[in-house]
Every structure is written in C-alpha cells, then in structure tokens.
C-alpha cells in the first residue's frame, strides 16, 4: 500500500512538473511574441542582429550535415522503394513514393532532429550556463528582459531557418533519390524530375514546411525551458542539455505522428 501511495505521489508530482513546464513554455512563446510586436514601441526591440547571428548558427552552419543526411535518406528511400516494389514489378512507381515521403515526412523530420541535436541542445546549454553564472540575473538588473534579449531572437531565427533547411533537405533528398533511381532503373534525371513534379502538389510541400515551422517552435521552447531549469553547476547543464535533446526529439516525433494522423487519412 505504501509503495502504491509513493508511486502515485511520484507520478502526480512529475505530471504537475510536466504541466508546469508546458505552461512555462507557453508563457515564453507569448512573451516572445509580445516583445516582437511591442518591443519597438517600448524602445526595447528584438534586435535583428541577434536574430541574424542565431540564424547563421542554427541555419547556415547546419547546411553541410543536413545536406549529407538528406542525400543519404533520399537514396535510402529509393533503395528500399525499388526493393519493395520489385516484388510487384512496379519499380517505376518508386518516384511517387520517394517524392511524397521525402517532402511530407522525411525532410522535416530529419532536419528537425538535426537542428534539435545541434541547436536546441546548444540553446539549453547556453542559457543554463548563463543562469549558473548569474548572467540572466545580470540582464534583469540591467533592465534588459531576458526573453526579449535571448529567447525571442533564438525562437524567430529557428522559425525562419528550420523551414528553409527543410526546403533544402527536400531538394537534396529528392536529388539523392534521383541519383540512385537513375543508376538502378536507368531513368534520366530529367524524367525523374518530371515525375517528381507530377507526383507532388503544393499542398504536400506546405504540409512538410508547416510541420517544420511547428517543430522549430517546439525545439526552441524545449531548449529554453530546459536551460532555464538548470540547477547544480556544470553537471546540471549537462543533464538539462541531454534532457533537452531527448524531449525535443520526442516532441517532434509525436507531433509528426499526430500531424500524419490528422492530415493524411
């Protein structure tokens, strides 16, 4: 009985803590939007320079790894697709499958996971370190709102860069798939491109890009919330950075599943 009570207590406490974190994330999002809109009027704008700096780190610096992974995933989908469709003698239909799965699923997912691993964790580590070094307190006492100064630029940079990276991933993964298809099936790249364009609608593209915009908000907020909750020095920073990656990837995959369920049936 005592064990059961303790278990229920633990579950209850963790649920409350989790709900508290979700509430905190929602507050951060609302405050970031507030500063974006009201900041200039209060002579405390969200600095474009900070957004650009974050954008370079989140987006431009991630181009090589997104490119490598996307071309690999595109080729992998083509390999698996041809292997499976060969059973039915329908290899030529592989382009349809590659195009749809890349644009609707794999590009946003792979890009989201890469950015969560690179930038979401970096955001958590940066804020956590700033917190334990009293840099956040220093911002407060200087009359500089930390949400405006640190969170909003990261959030908006993420919101701009993740869909752009996802679009890059779309193009590169389709190219990767195309290269394999042209080698294996002897189809020209031009014919492949024609089939891709025929297979895809604007709706498919927007479906993927829309998801990536939602992923970007999730990654930024999870990173910021975990960074803000750091306690206990360098070890605490490491713990919350790891937690940030695990949480943001989980959030991305679960949100992706919900999206697939709601919009693809």
């Amino acid at each position: 009985m005592a064990v059961l009570t303790q278990l229920m207590e633990t579950v209850g406490r963790r649920t409350m803590a989790g709900l508290g974190e979700i509430g905190y994330a929602a507050t951060l999002l609302a405050q970031s939007l507030f500063w974006l809109v009201m900041g200039p009027g209060r002579r405390q704008p969200v600095r474009l320079k900070a957004v650009v700096a974050q954008g370079m780190e989140i987006g431009v610096a991630a181009i090589p790894i997104v490119t490598v992974l996307s071309i690999t995933v595109g080729a992998m989908l083509a390999i698996q697709g041809i292997h499976t469709l060969r059973i039915f003698g329908a290899e030529s239909r592989v382009v349809f499958g590659v195009a749809l799965s890349v644009v609707r699923e794999f590009a946003p997912l792979i890009t989201g996971i890469v950015v969560a691993g690179r930038s979401g964790s970096a955001l958590a580590a940066r804020l956590g370190t700033m917190r334990i070094n009293q840099e956040i307190d220093a911002l407060h006492v200087m009359g500089i709102n930390p949400v405006r100064f640190l969170v909003a630029p990261a959030l908006f940079a993420m919101l701009i860069m993740l869909p752009l990276l996802t679009f890059l991933s779309d193009v590169v993964a389709l190219l990767g798939g195309g290269i394999y298809v042209s080698i294996d099936l002897g189809m020209s790249l031009a014919a492949y491109a024609d089939q891709v364009i025929e297979a895809l609608t604007l709706d498919d593209l927007l479906h993927g890009l829309g998801k990536s915009a939602i992923f970007s908000v999730l990654i930024a907020l999870v990173g910021v919330v975990n960074g803000s909750l750091v306690t206990g020095g360098a070890e605490g920073v490491g713990r919350m950075t790891t937690r940030s990656v695990v949480h943001s990837i989980s959030a991305i995959v679960i949100t992706d599943m919900i999206f697939a369920f709601m919009l693809s049936r």
Binding site: R126, N133, E135, D137, A138, H140
Partner: peptide
C-alpha cells in the same frame, strides 16, 4: 516599465562578474 527605468539608475557588480561570455 517603471522597474526598467529604475534599473537604469542602479548598477550591480556580481560576485563572479556575470560578464556575458559571448
């Protein structure tokens, strides 16, 4: 808004400096 104004009239030197490392 008043708090922000007030804070521009006070300065704080933290124990570890709290300089922004970036």
């Amino acid at each position: 808004i008043e708090l922000t104004k007030l804070r521009t009239r006070m300065g704080v030197a933290f124990q570890g400096g709290a300089l922004f490392s970036s």
